[in-house]
C-alpha cells in the first residue's frame, strides 16, 4: 500500500506491506534510524515520535495509519543549523543520557510532556509523565533534572 507522510518537514512516500509497523517504515523504508526499538509490547517508549504534534509510540501504529500525517522524529528536532533543541541541550547539560538508546524516544516524550503542560511541571509530574519511557542506564535522576530545567514550574 502507498503511504505518504510528511516527516521532519519533508514529504515522503513509499509502497509498503499493510502490516508494516510505523517504526519499521521510518527506520528501514525511510532510513530514519534515530528512532529505536526497545521492546515488542509498547512498554519501553524507545520508539516515541510525534504524530500530528502528539507523542506516539511508533511500534504501536501501522505505517498505513500514519498516511497523511505530519511526523517529527528525533532527526527533526535540532534546528537546521545544527543547534540542539532546548530539550536535547538540557539532556546533555544534565547528563541525562548514557548509552543513548532510550534517548531519542525519551527526548520526544519529554518535549511533548512539556508542551502539554504550559503551566510547568513538578518532579512528580515529570516522573509520571515519562512512565512510558524506560531507561536502564541513568536511574532517571538526571533525565528528570533535564526535563525540569526546560519545563519545570517557575
Amino acid at each position: 500500500m502507498e503511504v505518504s507522510v510528511t516527516v521532519n518537514g519533508e514529504r515522503r512516500s513509499a509502497d509498503v506491506e499493510p502490516r508494516t509497523l510505523l517504526v519499521h517504515f521510518l527506520r528501514e523504508t525511510l532510513g530514519l534510524t534515530g528512532t529505536n526499538v526497545g521492546c515488542d509490547t509498547s512498554s519501553c517508549g524507545a520508539c516515541t515520535i510525534h504524530v500530528n504534534g502528539e507523542s506516539a509510540k511508533s511500534c504501536t501504529m501501522f505505517a498505513v495509519q500514519a498516511d497523511g500525517a505530519e511526523i517529527t522524529t528525533i532527526e527533526g528536532l535540532a534546528s537546521e543549523d545544527g543547534e540542539l533543541h532546548p530539550m536535547q541541550q538540557a539532556f546533555m547539560d544534565c547528563h541525562g543520557l548514557q548509552c543513548g538508546y532510550c534517548t531519542p524516544g525519551m527526548v520526544m516524550a519529554a518535549t511533548s510532556l512539556v508542551a502539554e503542560n504550559p503551566g510547568g511541571l513538578d518532579e512528580a509530574g515529570v516522573r509520571e509523565g515519562l512512565e512510558g519511557n524506560l531507561c536502564r542506564c541513568t536511574g532517571y535522576h538526571n533525565i528528570v533534572k533535564a526535563v525540569l530545567s526546560v519545563g519545570g514550574a517557575a
Binding site: R27, L32, T33, G34, T35, N36, V37, T73, I74, E75, L77, A78, L84, Q88, F91, M92, L97, G100, Y101, T103, P104, V107
Partner: peptide
C-alpha cells in the same frame, strides 16, 4: 546520540 545519529547494529 541526542540527534539520533548513534549507529547501533540494527
Amino acid at each position: 546520540l541526542l540527534a539520533g545519529e548513534g549507529k547501533y547494529v540494527d
